[in-house]
C-alpha cells in the first residue's frame, strides 16, 4: 500500500513541480518587494538559495545511499546516488553562477577568494570527480563500492560549505533562514517567495532523481545490463576436402 502510494505520488511530482515553480516565479518577480539597498538583483536570491539547498540535499542523499551500498542493502541505492550526484553537480554550478551574477551587482566582482565560494567550488569539483570515478572501467561491484566510499568522504564538504560563513570571516552573508536564532531577518513576502522557490526546486529535483533512477534500472539501460559479448565472425562450416 505504501509502495503504491509512493508510485502514485511519484507520477505527480512533475506536474506538482511545474505548478509550484510557476507560483514561485510570480512570487519572486512580482509579489516580493524590491530590496531597499540591493535593488532588483536581490531577486536572484530566489534562485540562488533554492539551487544551493537542492545541491546540499542531493549530496546528503548521495551519502545516505552510499552507506546503503556499503552495507549491501537490497535496493536501487547505487542508481539513486548517481542520479542525486548529477542533480547536485547541476545545482551547485547553478548556485555558483547565480551567486557570481549577484556578487557582481552587490560586491562589484564576479568572484572572490571567499571561504563560502571556495568551499562550494571544491564541492563542485569533488562531485564531478565522483561522477568521473563512476565511469572508470572495472568490476561492477568494485566500481559501486569505490563510488560509495567517495560519496561518503565528499559529503564531509557539505557542512563545511554551509557553516563556512559562520566559522570564518567572509564576504558572503550568513544564512538567512537556517541560522542558529530562529528569527529570519527578512520581510515576510520575501521569505514566502524564498520558501516556495525552495519547494519548487525540491520537487523538481525529486522528479529528476526518480526519472533518472527508472532509466538507470530499466532492463534496456546499459547501466543495468552487463555488456554483451563482442560479436565474432561466424565460423565457416567444416567440410571434407574433396581434393583436386
Amino acid at each position: 500500500m505504501v509502495r503504491s502510494w509512493a508510485a502514485r505520488a511519484g507520477t505527480r511530482l512533475g506536474p506538482a513541480a511545474l505548478g509550484v515553480a510557476a507560483v514561485a516565479a510570480v512570487l519572486a518577480l512580482v509579489v516580493a518587494p524590491r530590496a531597499a539597498i540591493q535593488g532588483e538583483p536581490q531577486r536572484l536570491m530566489y534562485v540562488h538559495v533554492p539551487g544551493a539547498w537542492t545541491a546540499f540535499a542531493a549530496f546528503a542523499c548521495v551519502a545516505l545511499c552510499s552507506i546503503a551500498v556499503l552495507l549491501r542493502r537490497p535496493g536501487p541505492y547505487d542508481a539513486v546516488a548517481r542520479a542525486a550526484a548529477e542533480l547536485g553537480v547541476a545545482m551547485t554550478a547553478l548556485a555558483i553562477a547565480e551567486g557570481s551574477l549577484w556578487g557582481h551587482s552587490a560586491w562589484g566582482v564576479w568572484w572572490a577568494w571567499d571561504p563560502r565560494l571556495v568551499t562550494t567550488a571544491l564541492l563542485l569539483v569533488s562531485y564531478v570527480a565522483y561522477l568521473a570515478l563512476r565511469s572508470l572501467p572495472g568490476d561492477e561491484d568494485r566500481v559501486r563500492r569505490r563510488a560509495a566510499v567517495a560519496g561518503l568522504v565528499f559529503s564531509v564538504e557539505v557542512p563545511i560549505a554551509h557553516f563556512s560563513v559562520l566559522w570564518w570571516r567572509t564576504l558572503h552573508q550568513p544564512p538567512t533562514v537556517l541560522r542558529p536564532s530562529l528569527s529570519p531577518p527578512i520581510a515576510p513576502l520575501m521569505l514566502l517567495a524564498l520558501l516556495v522557490g525552495v519547494l519548487a526546486f525540491t520537487l523538481a529535483g525529486a522528479w529528476y532523481v526518480r526519472r533518472r533512477v527508472l532509466q538507470l534500472t530499466a532492463p534496456t539501460s546499459p547501466a543495468a545490463v552487463p555488456a554483451a559479448p563482442a560479436e565474432r565472425a561466424p565460423v565457416p562450416p567444416m567440410r571434407e576436402e574433396t581434393g583436386a
Binding site: 538583483p41 534562485v47 539551487g51 548529477e86 547553478l94 547565480e98 549577484w102 557582481h104
Partner: peptide
C-alpha cells in the same frame, strides 16, 4: 548590467539548467 537585466540573465540561466536536466532524462528514454 541594469538591475532587471541581471535578474533576467539569472532566471534564464536557471531555466536553461533545468531544461538541460529534463532533456537529459527524456532524451535518454527514447
Amino acid at each position: 548590467m541594469t538591475g532587471w537585466t541581471t535578474v533576467a540573465v539569472g532566471y534564464l540561466l536557471a531555466v536553461a539548467v533545468w531544461a538541460l536536466l529534463v532533456w537529459t532524462v527524456l532524451r535518454r528514454r527514447s
